[in-house]
Simulated assay, not measured.
Amino acid sequence: MKDQFADLGVEVAADETDTSETITIMQCNWPAFLVFLACATQWRVVTNTAGLIFLGLDYPGCQIVLQHHAAAPHVFGDLQAMEEAALEILNEAD
């Protein structure tokens, strides 16, 4: 992507983030993982003087994603478990 920006005459600083770490997702969790990723734009967020506060996922929006993926009913519970874990990380104070 850096080359594509260079072709446009734009210089982009390289991200020094180590991306070599990999994770393994069990096959039985794969549908829930895909739904969680697809719901990335469904977070309800408020802002105040301290910054952003993530409230949780917008369930009506997530329902559309679940239907689109033809997800089994238990995937919603898996999604809620991932949401709960993500909220702890997203709302950590610096």
Rank of each mutant, 00 (worst) to 15 (best):
D15S: 15
N48H: 04
Q27A: 15
I89Y: 04
R44C: 02
A70N: 13
M26R: 11
V10E: 02
H74M: 11
F36I: 05
V10C: 08
P60W: 10
L8Y: 09
Q67V: 15
L37C: 09
T19L: 13
A71H: 03
Q63A: 14
E84G: 04
I53V: 12
D94V: 14
H74K: 06
I25A: 06
F76C: 08
G56M: 06
G56Y: 03
E21Q: 14
V35L: 04
C62S: 10
L37F: 03
E84H: 11
A13G: 13
M1F: 11
L90N: 02
E16W: 08
V45D: 01
L57W: 08
A14Q: 14
G61P: 05
W30D: 07
D18K: 02
C28F: 11
T22P: 00
A13R: 13
V12F: 10
D78H: 11
A32S: 09
I25H: 02
K2M: 10
H69F: 15
E11D: 12
I64Y: 07
D18P: 00
Q80G: 06
I89P: 00
D78C: 11
T17I: 13
F33A: 14
A81K: 04
D15I: 15
A81I: 06
A81W: 02
E16C: 08
E11L: 07
E21D: 13
L87S: 05
S20T: 15
E84P: 01
F36Y: 12
G61C: 10
A93Y: 05
G56I: 03
A32G: 12
Q63V: 10
L52F: 03
H74G: 09
T41N: 13
F5T: 02
T49E: 12
P31D: 14
V46Q: 01
D7S: 15
P31A: 14
G56L: 05
N48D: 15
I89E: 06
G9A: 10
D15M: 13
G77W: 04
F76Q: 10
L8I: 09
C62K: 06
R44T: 05
A71V: 11
A32I: 15
D18V: 03
L66G: 06
Q67K: 09
P31Q: 09
D94Y: 08
G77R: 03
T17L: 14
Q4K: 05
T47Y: 01
G9N: 08
A71D: 04
A93S: 11
I64V: 15
D58T: 04
I25K: 02
T47H: 04
E92D: 10
N91C: 01
I53Q: 01
V35I: 11
C39I: 07
M82V: 04
C39P: 04
S20D: 10
A86R: 02
S20E: 12
V35W: 05
C62R: 04
L66Q: 02
I23S: 05
G61I: 09
W30V: 15
L90M: 14
A6E: 11
A6V: 09
F54P: 00
G56V: 03
L90C: 07
T24E: 12
L52P: 01
L87K: 05
H68L: 14
I53Y: 02
D94W: 09
G61Q: 10
V46M: 01
T24S: 12
D78N: 12
A86Q: 04
F76D: 06
C62M: 11
A50T: 14
G61S: 12
A86V: 06
D94P: 14
L66P: 03
V45K: 00
W43A: 02
V75D: 05
F33P: 01
C28L: 12
A13Q: 15
D15V: 15
L8A: 15
T22D: 07
